[in-house]
């Protein structure tokens, strides 16, 4: 126990935790949305994220963007990275739905079969990238200087952190509003709450499921490009660890619950950093999972409890 270091590192830990947590939160939305609608853990979602990081990195390498940009060039490069990341992730999510899930759903296969299918798809995607791209880390260029804007306590608030947290929050709010207010969102919620009645109301379930994967993929794509901005490297297995954390965040917040994903993501990010500063960095993951188990003992359905089925998103 190093309570002293917890105190001295409180603000840097908080800033790093919020940064990491907001990426987890975006990532977690994919798990939560798909679970909400299909009652299925999309274990290949970590690869949806991985393909996003790869796509953003690829377009930078392809266009030979490797240095600090400014002005329109910077905005353009960031948007391009984001577009490719979202496109790559969304396409992967849609492909997964079509290839790994829909055929099983059509045949009325069990959830267990879908889970195995997801794990299989996850391995296939990883190995395709390992064999045909590289088994080494590839770098994502630093597009802008990570300069300090202001300080909170001993923590420096740098431009990259601000970009990550603001972008994550904007995307989460946008998604939340989409699900709450649009016809698409009503369809998603209807299918989540009662798929058969949704059909009786004229909701096309297949299309709604597709849109759900699409939205989850887009969010994972944003998470992926922000991850690239933060850590600046990616590899075929990059999705694994953050994927587990994001899934944990979704469960902690209440799987199927959009606000739960945000809350869960931030809590996991902060817990990792606080746990590491109190117990040492080798305990950061342990801290997270101990807290998860404790929360689930007392609130089996997660902090915000309800699923998408119940939540007034």
């Amino acid at each position: 126990m190093h309570l002293h270091s917890f105190v001295t590192q409180f603000w840097p830990s908080t800033v790093d935790g919020v940064t990491l947590g907001s990426i987890y939160a975006l990532f977690a939305l994919g798990y939560t949305l798909v679970y909400g609608v299909l009652k299925l853990i999309n274990f290949a979602h970590s690869e949806v994220f991985m393909v996003g990081t790869m796509s953003a990195m690829w377009i930078m390498h392809f266009l030979n963007i490797s240095a600090i940009q400014s002005g329109f060039a910077l905005v353009g490069a960031l948007l391009l990275a984001a577009l490719f990341s979202m496109g790559g992730s969304a396409a992967t999510a849609l492909a997964l739905e079509r290839v790994a899930y829909r055929p099983l759903r059509r045949r009325g296969a069990s959830r267990l079969a879908a889970l195995i299918s997801a794990i299989g798809a996850s391995f296939v995607l990883q190995q395709v990238f390992e064999v045909y791209y590289s088994n080494q880390y590839s770098n994502f260029p630093r597009l802008f200087k990570h300069s300090t804007l202001f300080n909170i306590g001993s923590a420096q608030i740098t431009t990259d952190r601000v970009l990550i947290v603001v972008a994550a929050v904007v995307m989460m709010v946008a998604l939340e509003r989409t699900v709450a207010l649009t016809k698409l969102g009503r369809g998603i919620r209807a299918v989540a709450q009662d798929p058969e009645t949704a059909t009786l109301m004229g909701v096309n379930i297949d299309r709604t499921i597709m849109y759900t994967f699409l939205l989850g993929g887009i969010m994972a794509g944003v998470a992926a490009v922000l991850w690239n901005v933060r850590f600046e490297q990616t590899r075929f297995d990059i999705g694994f660890l953050p994927g587990i954390k994001a899934f944990t965040a979704a469960v902690l917040g209440g799987i199927g619950n959009i606000r739960g994903a945000l809350l869960g993501g931030l809590i996991i990010g902060l817990l990792e950093l606080y746990g590491a500063s109190v117990f040492g960095s080798q305990w950061r993951d342990t801290t997270v999972f101990v807290v998860l188990v404790l929360v689930l003992l007392f609130r089996p359905s997660g902090l915000l409890g309800e699923s998408l089925a119940r939540a007034r998103a």
Binding site: S5, D237, L241, L273, A276, S277, S281, R284
Partner: peptide, 20 residues
């Protein structure tokens, strides 16, 4: 004295300790 996860990406907790 700290340990990092070789498969992890975020080493900020270790970095914060060192910087402090």
């Amino acid at each position: 004295d700290d340990h990092v996860d070789p498969n992890g990406q975020d080493y900020s907790s270790t970095v914060n300790k060192i910087v402090a």
